[in-house]
Design a protein around this nucleic acid. Sequence first.
DNA 1: GATGAATGAGAATTCATTCAT
DNA 2: TATGAATGAATTCTCATTCAT
Lengths: 214, 214, 214, 214
Amino acid sequence: MSRDSKRIPSVVKNRQLVEKRRQQIIRGACDLFVRKGFHRTTTREIARECGLSIGTMYEYIQSKEDVLYLVCDHIHSELESRLKSALAETGSGREGLTKAIAQHFRVMAEMSDDVLLIYQETKSLPGEAMSYVLKKEEEITSLFEEILQRGIRDGTLTLDPSVVKLMAHNIMVLGQMWTFRRWALKGLYTLEEYTRHQTALLLNQCIHPKTGGK
Amino acid sequence: MSRDSKRIPSVVKNRQLVEKRRQQIIRGACDLFVRKGFHRTTTREIARECGLSIGTMYEYIQSKEDVLYLVCDHIHSELESRLKSALAETGSGREGLTKAIAQHFRVMAEMSDDVLLIYQETKSLPGEAMSYVLKKEEEITSLFEEILQRGIRDGTLTLDPSVVKLMAHNIMVLGQMWTFRRWALKGLYTLEEYTRHQTALLLNQCIHPKTGGK
Amino acid sequence: MSRDSKRIPSVVKNRQLVEKRRQQIIRGACDLFVRKGFHRTTTREIARECGLSIGTMYEYIQSKEDVLYLVCDHIHSELESRLKSALAETGSGREGLTKAIAQHFRVMAEMSDDVLLIYQETKSLPGEAMSYVLKKEEEITSLFEEILQRGIRDGTLTLDPSVVKLMAHNIMVLGQMWTFRRWALKGLYTLEEYTRHQTALLLNQCIHPKTGGK
Amino acid sequence: MSRDSKRIPSVVKNRQLVEKRRQQIIRGACDLFVRKGFHRTTTREIARECGLSIGTMYEYIQSKEDVLYLVCDHIHSELESRLKSALAETGSGREGLTKAIAQHFRVMAEMSDDVLLIYQETKSLPGEAMSYVLKKEEEITSLFEEILQRGIRDGTLTLDPSVVKLMAHNIMVLGQMWTFRRWALKGLYTLEEYTRHQTALLLNQCIHPKTGGK
DNA sequence: GATGAATGAGAATTCATTCAT
DNA sequence: TATGAATGAATTCTCATTCAT
């Protein structure tokens, strides 16, 4: 899934094994990072958690930061794939957007911890890896941009061209918001209510000001 | 300003001195945390940056985490005070909301680094301190809730009661978004454009669909 | 050539193969040891350099120190054989000594890196291996002793018997000196000049003090 | 004594204390390096040997290599100072040279282990430090050059100008030879015999061949 | 109150060697 | 015979915190 874990060199040459072991590492490390954060997690803990000896683990990575990169990359890939497959089943236009938002919010809720992790630890990645991760984020955002564009084209959504990108970002953020404001939101709304309200508000914005809002 | 730094015990008893030294610590540490993150900053660096010896610094705090708490508390207080004083000049209702949003966004942009810092390091706070910081965040959010309520009361804003709190959170998040998505947004919009568009979208939501759409 | 690599046990029994593989190991390791020193070279690097897998390499040695021993032994054997074949062509007496010195210095210059290696890493050999290597050094030294003795016998060299061994050692060291002082000597003399001067000085010593020096 | 240990930064600022602690470190490390070599000695062993905690030791150095530098620098300084003070008492010309050689050999014998250490571990120094150490070696060598020049000037030594530098290097090396060939020489000569013979041989060289050899 | 030297537990990473295939 | 993945003890270095002066 995360095709680009190839970027990280490993001592072990067997590609299949590398992929398998890295999945182990990702699984173990992700749990720990979510629970304790990247810096509070030691490499020995990661090794223990994923059932490898410390030496073996280091045959598959070069540094602790590599583990963070693997984890972030994995989460983004997972997000992207889930969202893409969700959007595939989605119709177009206004109705499609409604479904897409619901799927997005559902994915965010399901991967709440992981999303939070990305938001808090991405800055700990070394420069190049960070750029890569941000690019991934932008790709995902553009999925929503496309949906909006299709809606505009088929006339079910009315939106000024200059705010299409902004709306896409807004949708992304309102989804993520469920994870990083859950301490407040969970007491106020269920995910369903949250989704319903936000969707209504967002759709409200997709009516051209002149005909709708004025 | 940060009345609650009193929570943190200090060896030194002279209240005034404690306050002065802690301001030094906050200033130095904040810079460093923004640049390198909490975990990558050492206590020695903090001491050097704020012009105290490491021993002296420890007369005014009990642990490195205390410094993070002081910094987070300071940033929240600063945010709150700036926003409050900005809102004081603000009229009420629809127009007031417009101004409030603009002020909020301006404050976010000005304190961009600090806001980012809070979002990335709050989770490193020990339990109690974190609750305190989150409470502060909720207080600030409720400032917007009040504005919305006033607007509803004076009839310039139409909003279902069940989404008032949600709208307040949304406004908060759309402001913060300028800081944590600046890597993408800065290339698309100036702060002024961003503010204008988001305000338009938000106001668009404050008209009840049924009556407003007409 | 290095008959005594037999001392080191190997899992593989085929004598020929053992000899072939060990030559590979020596070649690869020698390069690396010269470049990085024994301790800074890893067994993995040695294996890679000599085209064997790490597992295979360990079929032919028992420990990393064995590799050092093989290398040191090889270098000494090479030195001895080159010097011996050079001395074979050499006449006797004063003239023979002159040629022998020139050959010795030439060999030292050609094997500069290897000689340096021996001087810096011999102490890393385990006790027994070190004794063996030192014995080899003594054997080579005695080649010069013999030349001197022959010169004394044929009357072309005049030298007090008590300093014959010393002179032999001196000749050895002045040759090696070209390698371990090259950082200074290369700036002062070419190898030819160096050889000419040292030879003159040495021959000057081979005149009995009573008749010559007084 | 080793004025240039200033080159190595230390966390501790008190110059006097730094000097004192570094003397401790040098003493302990030197012993260990002589016994086991640089690479086989651990930082913890060094710390224990010199009576500091590992943490404290690292307040006075930046890396293990710094310790090697301190040790090498110390040995060179010691050599230089001993030799200089020995040479001060020395007359000039032929007789002066005789005494200088004796002093030099005595110092070499006394500091046998240290000299050996330098010869075997200098290559482990990082580039700049190595250059510095080699410069020191050259300075010491030039002390002998001066003695030779004085002898030539006052007519008690006859030596072609082109071999003066070479002779100086030879004297240096013949002294060091007592340390790195002691495994062979100790069985053949006492230090006194060794000194007497080598001195005779060297002085023999300081008579111009044409006039002397007749 | 201020200082800064001392401490040592703990962290990341390496690497010689083994052994199942 | 050949391979290379697995191992974990050992190593260097860091850093929050303390405490004697």
